[in-house]
Structure formats: structure tokens, C-alpha cells
């Protein structure tokens, strides 16, 4: 293999050599005037195929001697990606420094073939070689991997359908039981609740509960009027089914008139008087009378009691 390499190098360099010297071919000399040394500058901790490594080659030779750039002895195992060159002089010796960026495409524990430089002396071509570069290059494919796409073993899923059905039945049972309990409680509460008072009874009851004397002795006339007025408004809201609590006195009276309530004028006077006390600091002569006036209005607008049936009359 090395012989083949030497023949290739000889072929390459023959273009630049005189015709007589080309015929003889280059000769590899170990202890000649040219010496090649290598030094690894940068290498990854784990070197994989294709990773970049930086190698520095120093070619020592006499000043007057012209030396070719280095070439790898075996071209296929390494690719030179980049090459930088500068020259240093130490007395009569010149040092060609080559910084090479390489990529290695062979795997395993191996020694890279040496780098060769050629030079001409006394019309003959000679070669000088560096030492081999020891490297361990790993493959990208895992060692345990048998193939690129290993087949995974078949996965068996457990059949949970019976479990889900059972859980669903239990859930439905619980929901049904809770609903039944809720319904029972709701019915019991409905039974316990007192029947709602009719609006006139509710209003009369609220009016009778007012602490009129207490408020008036404390000088809270306005409070009394506000409360009585609100009771009447709530009564009208329930009795005639319109939102009297959210309406002004004018709107309430208009509403009562449109419903043809017989005592709408009395309501108008009542609300006008109440408004004067509430909003204008009026001091009524008999403030307590407002409760009686409200009571009268409620009594006047409550529906007439239904006539008793003939059977009841007969019993009477």
C-alpha cells in the first residue's frame, strides 16, 4: 500500500520536476535534512466519525531547501478540510508550520498514516514522513444496536371496559340516590314553609309592627315616612304587579291611573305628602297619621272577599 502511495506521489510531483529526475522517482529518507513532527492541538473527548480535529505539522529543513506542503500518505482515511501555513526561521533552519483541520472517516483504534513532504536535492526527489498519528474513532451507531430501526416487542393493553362499566353504574347509582335525597329534602322544606301572605295582609302586618312612638319621640319623622312609603310601594308592587319600588311617585300615580284604580288620587296625595317630608324636610302636624293613611289605602284597594257559596249560606 505504501508502495502504491509512493508511486502516486511520484506521479503528482513529476509535473514540477525536470525530465531526467522524474524518471528515477522519489526516495523516502528517514534521517535526511528534512524532519516532520506532528502535534494534536484540538481533539474532542470522544472522537466520532467526521468530527474535526486540529493537527499542527512542523517541517524542519535547511533554509535553502524548498519543501512541498504535506499530504496524507493514505488519502481515503482522512480529509484535510482546512490548511493554514506560516514559516519560521531558526538560524539556518527553516520551520514550515501547517495547521490542519482534519476529519477522520475510519473507525476503531488506529494509527493514521504519516504525512509526507517532498523536496529536491541534487536533481533528485526525496520524501520525508512524519510519525503515525494514533487515534480512537468511534462509530455513531450504538454498539448495542443490531439494526438502524430495531423492532420493539408487541405491547398488550389490558381490557378495562368491565371496570369502566362497573364504575359508571356505581356513579349513576350515587347520583340517583343524591337526587332522590335532595328532592325529599326540598319537598319537606316546601311543606314546612308557611304559605305566603297576601299583599294586603303583609302590608298591614308590616304597618302594625312599626315602632311609631319610639321613632317619633326620637325625632325620626323622616325615617317613619321613608319606611311607610316603602311598605306601600311594596304592597303596590305585589298587589298590582308593577315595579312600584323602582318608580317615582309620579310614575306610580300614572300607573295606578292607567289601571283605573279607584283611589289613585288618594295615593297621589299620600305620595306627594310623603315626598315633602322625605325630600323637603317638611314637618307634618300629625306625623303618626301617615300610618293610618297607609292602612286606609291598603284596605281600600284590597279585593272584596268572595261571596260565600249557597251551600255555606244554607248552613249559616
Amino acid at each position: 500500500m505504501v508502495l502504491a502511495l509512493l508511486l502516486i506521489l511520484a506521479q503528482i510531483s513529476s509535473d514540477s520536476l525536470p525530465a531526467d529526475s522524474a524518471s528515477t522517482g522519489p526516495q523516502l529518507i528517514e534521517n535526511g535534512p528534512v524532519r516532520v513532527e506532528w502535534q494534536l492541538i484540538k481533539k474532542p473527548r470522544v472522537l466520532n466519525v467526521g468530527d474535526h480535529i486540529r493537527l499542527r505539522l512542523r517541517v524542519y529543513h535547511p533554509r535553502e531547501l524548498t519543501v512541498s506542503p504535506p499530504l496524507p500518505a493514505v488519502p481515503n482515511e482522512v480529509v484535510v478540510l482546512d490548511q493554514k501555513h506560516h514559516i519560521q526561521y531558526r538560524g539556518d533552519t527553516a520551520v514550515d508550520v501547517y495547521d490542519l483541520t482534519l476529519a477522520v472517516f475510519v473507525i476503531g483504534e488506529r494509527k493514521l498514516a504519516p504525512f509526507l513532504v517532498s523536496y529536491q536535492q541534487q536533481n533528485r526527489m526525496y520524501l520525508a514522513a512524519s510519525d503515525s498519528v494514533p487515534l480512537r474513532v468511534q462509530s455513531l451507531i450504538s454498539e448495542r444496536m443490531q439494526d438502524i430501526n430495531d423492532l420493539k416487542p408487541q405491547v398488550t393493553f389490558p381490557n378495562l371496559l368491565p371496570l369502566w362499566i362497573a364504575l359508571g353504574l356505581i356513579g349513576a347509582g350515587l347520583a340517583g340516590y343524591s337526587g332522590w335525597r335532595f328532592w325529599q329534602r326540598y319537598r319537606r322544606r316546601q311543606e314546612e314553609l308557611e304559605p305566603e301572605l297576601p299583599p294586603w295582609d303583609e302590608a298591614l302586618q308590616a304597618l302594625s309592627k312599626l315602632p311609631v312612638e319610639e321613632w317619633l319621640s326620637a325625632g325620626q319623622v323622616k325615617r317613619l315616612y321613608y319606611t311607610v312609603s316603602e311598605i306601600v310601594k311594596r304592597y303596590l308592587t305585589r298587589r298590582f304587579e308593577f315595579p312600584a319600588v323602582d318608580q317615582t311617585s309620579t310614575e306610580i300615580v300614572r300607573e295606578l291611573k292607567s289601571r283605573k284604580v279607584a283611589v289613585s288620587e288618594r295615593f297621589a296625595t299620600f305620595f306627594l305628602d310623603a315626598d315633602l317630608v322625605k325630600y323637603a324636610k317638611y314637618l307634618p302636624a300629625e306625623p303618626a297619621s301617615v300610618v293610618n293613611r297607609a292602612r286606609e289605602l291598603v284596605e281600600l284597594t284590597r279585593p272584596a272577599p268572595e261571596p260565600a257559596s249557597p251551600a255555606v249560606e244554607a248552613i249559616k
Partner: peptide, 9 residues
């Protein structure tokens, strides 16, 4: 109804 307070009157 009697009267307004003095300030309002």
C-alpha cells in the same frame, strides 16, 4: 301637613 323647615322655606 304643617310647614317647611326655615332653611328650605
Amino acid at each position: 301637613m304643617a310647614e317647611l323647615k326655615d332653611d328650605i322655606r
